[in-house]
Design a protein around this nucleic acid. Structure first.
Lengths: 147, 147
DNA sequence: GTACATTATATGTATCTACATGTATTGTCA
DNA sequence: TGACAATACATGTAGATACATATAATGTAC
């Protein structure tokens, strides 16, 4: 049996996310980084000194997920955290090693991006990305408003 | 900081999948089922006697993921497996309890579907689902070495 | 200025996920 | 038929994910 077209929005989006993740993991295989970790490095590279919560919000993950992500990245020596003026906050920055690895893996990530575009077509890929972002935006903004 | 629009197709699709998952988990909260489990029940309800691998392919998950999913569903008494003619295969079917639960939770799932459509608009929701399915199809077919 | 609420992060727990690999069964071919 | 390949499922391991909750620090109201 082949991949089923399911009526469920959730299930279908998850199918797609899983499939694309496998592609990116493939491209990063052996590099020591996972797709989500690479994304975090990219973010820290372009926006240093984010707090844990800020990074979580930017990526659209739970704060506890971000905490664990960052713990792994820190353990690998790719980033370090410093306590901010508000001493509850941790501010994160890439280490030299983290910067180097991010730079080194960028071509692999670009290859994954291109592979994705090749399979879907550039226009369709762009449309899917835009629609996904819109969905994520709409959903996360409203969901956090709980009385 | 708000949700970021990321250049990465993988990261963006994952953002969307996470956000929509939270919505569905919310709707199913307290029911004893998770969104992925409900999807599996729906599938087993409409297509009984699937093998573990067939179910994995239909859902677009790894076989080992399906094995674990089904183990949990079985442990909860919602489905049972029988050994097929090929004695390596397990064929799965909902139990009466599983059928009942699936039926009972269907309105909640429908509410989640409607909530999703309400946030995105029906047309946009449909377009996103279609594009996601196309992406998942293209990616999984090629990855599995297809003609 | 203290009691109480709020906020930032961390931890316990459980599921989802997949890769590498193991085991049992089936298929193939010489 | 017997060796070896292929297949179906299971297990070990590890990261991704989020909820409930804990802890520590900050903010607020009186």
């Amino acid at each position: 049996m082949n991949l089923l077209s399911l009526p469920c929005y959730c299930a279908t989006l998850r199918q797609a996310a899983r499939a694309v993740t496998v592609l990116y993991e493939d491209m990063l295989a052996g590099s020591g980084l996972h797709a989500t970790q690479f994304t975090a490095l990219q973010l820290l590279d372009s926006a240093p000194n984010l707090t844990t919560t800020e990074l979580a919000e930017a990526l659209g993950v739970d704060q506890t997920t971000a905490t664990r992500m960052l713990a792994l990245i820190k353990k690998a020596g790719l980033a370090s955290d410093t306590v901010g003026a508000d001493r509850r906050q941790r501010r994160w920055a890439l280490s030299a090693q983290g910067q180097a690895l991010q730079k080194k893996l960028k071509p692999r990530w670009e290859a994954a991006q291109e592979a994705f575009e090749k399979r879907l077509g550039r226009a369709e890929a762009a449309a899917l990305k835009k629609a996904s972002y819109r969905a994520a935006s709409r959903l996360s903004s409203t969901q956090t408003v709980h009385p």
